[in-house]
Nucleic acid binder design. Structure first.
Lengths: 220, 220
DNA sequence: ACCTTGTTTTTGATTACTCAAAATACAAGT
DNA sequence: ACTTGTATTTTGAGTAATCAAAAACAAGGT
């Protein structure tokens, strides 16, 4: 059995591989796990010895098939638990991330499948992140763009929030830019770096282009 | 924050104090936690230094008020989680004990109160064990007897199963003597040590008197 | 080629929990 | 009081995960 710590290293590696493919530098794990570099080196060595990671000296790591399968399982637990906390326990979608962080290591496969069933086997979590199925496959994702690249004046729907920090989720919550919201991009001002968009109710929101990149939208 | 290990020591101590009051011998913890005696001695020392237990040398331990409060909290989590697994996730009541054992250390107070609310603040778990409220108080328990001491020929209802081992729960499940079942004790045979009782459907069950002591009943 | 800067690795310690096995204390029985 | 058996404590050691601080390395820029 993989310890909670090992599961966290696996999950962090998978998330990094998904967003920037190629080898995952040690520093990325230092950042994601909040430990000092030396700790990552020794953990990574141990995990490589267990066949969970390949460690290229002074380069970084990449998941082995076994490591990847475990990591996907952890991600599935995390995202199903988040969905459960919001839908069944009526918790606020911006506060469930940390709770799920703890629960993902304690939920057995048996319990997880009951939860998945209860929720009707959802394919995305409350932040719009895809939930892999029990075999580890991610559903084919529809064409989507980040808010700073999508077409202007089209009816769009927010599908995903890439930044899971407390502050950012609270901001998204407050402005109403959360997954499911219908919006339309009015204009971008490259000079000032500001983007203007219109919410369903007609209210207008201005936000920085670098912030807009963290919000993903699809056709409404 | 108390580690899972510390929580388990606290819970085991509380359970022993509840079933046999007075000081809890080290051996009881050895038994309950499945570790060697030396391990218990050193853990107990550390916990006593933290103010969670009082340790009487060569005698055993007893909970301090702080330790008791924490232990009651763990028990509340365990029993609410069990109830949740049975009622909401439709799991078999005889298999939830071990799942709850893992989850009780990962569920935050915030999540726990949502679960309690979802379930309508239940006061007993699927085995009939009382669930303390959020302040740590146990509901006043109605007069109850174990099956080997109760009156004959009275309509009774099973309210609680004291033995939580897999095999025993499976046996209870199979015979139908689970909490909620209506029964009537026909006769006891001290010589053979056998007790005969009748289930709701009219079926008759024979079981040893030492086994009957693990089943608690109340007025139907 | 050399020096600077940033990343990674090594080394030496620490904390929490555990075991094995030896030492000690206690209670009871003769 | 002495012996015996059981419960408890001590001692020494090991594993997993961590940190601090020093050392090694890689890559560029001059």
């Amino acid at each position: 059995m993989a310890s909670s710590t090992v599961e966290n290293y696996l999950k962090a590696t998978l998330l990094h591989e998904q967003k920037a493919d190629g080898i995952v530098p040690m520093g990325a794990l230092v950042e994601a796990l909040g430990v000092v570099p030396g700790t990552v080196t020794s953990m990574v060595k141990a995990m490589a010895a267990q066949g969970l990671l390949e460690h290229e000296a002074r380069q970084g790591v990449r998941l082995t098939p076994i490591g990847r399968a475990l990591a996907v399982g952890v991600l599935r637990k995390h995202r199903l638990v988040e969905t459960f906390l919001v839908r069944t326990l009526k918790m606020d979608w911006s506060e469930v991330h940390d709770e799920a962080e703890a629960l993902e290591h304690a939920v057995s496969d048996r319990v997880l499948e009951r939860i998945s069933e209860l929720l009707g086997h959802p394919t995305t979590d409350p932040h719009g992140d895809p939930i892999p199925d029990a075999e580890g496959n991610f559903a084919a994702t529809k064409t989507q763009d980040s808010l700073d690249l999508c077409a202007l004046d089209q009816p769009l729907r927010v599908t995903r929030i890439l930044d899971q920090t407390q502050e950012f989720l609270a901001y998204v919550q407050e402005t109403g830019l959360k997954p499911g919201a219908k919006i339309r991009v009015l204009r971008r001002e490259p000079a000032s770096g500001v983007l203007h968009c219109e919410l369903a109710g007609g209210t207008e929101v201005a936000l920085g282009l670098h912030i807009a990149g963290k919000i993903i939208v699809g056709a409404a």
